[in-house]
């Protein structure tokens, strides 16, 4: 079965650069790019939704099919 990749949407207007999403991602998908979080390695994403769940600023949406 082919793995489908989600779409990780980061709303930079809301992101405050707290690092929570980057640190608690079990697969190291995200990184800090300057002040904001950004996607580094989307292929590794397992859609666990931890980043979306933990982001205190409503800045991440993991959109799956």
């Amino acid at each position: 079965m082919e793995k489908t990749l989600p779409k990780i949407e980061i709303i930079e207007k809301y992101c405050k650069g707290c690092h929570i999403c980057v640190e608690f991602c079990p697969k190291d998908v995200l990184e800090m790019k300057g002040f904001y979080a950004s996607v580094k390695n989307l292929e590794a994403c397992i859609k666990c939704m931890q980043c979306e769940l933990r982001c205190p600023d409503f800045a991440i949406k993991v959109i799956t099919e």
Binding site: K13, Y14, K16, I20, R54, C55, P56, D57, F58
Partner: peptide, 13 residues
């Protein structure tokens, strides 16, 4: 949004 809480504040969670 964005809310007034500081970066990393748990109130958003």
């Amino acid at each position: 949004l964005p809310h007034i809480w500081c970066p990393g504040c748990g109130h958003g969670i």
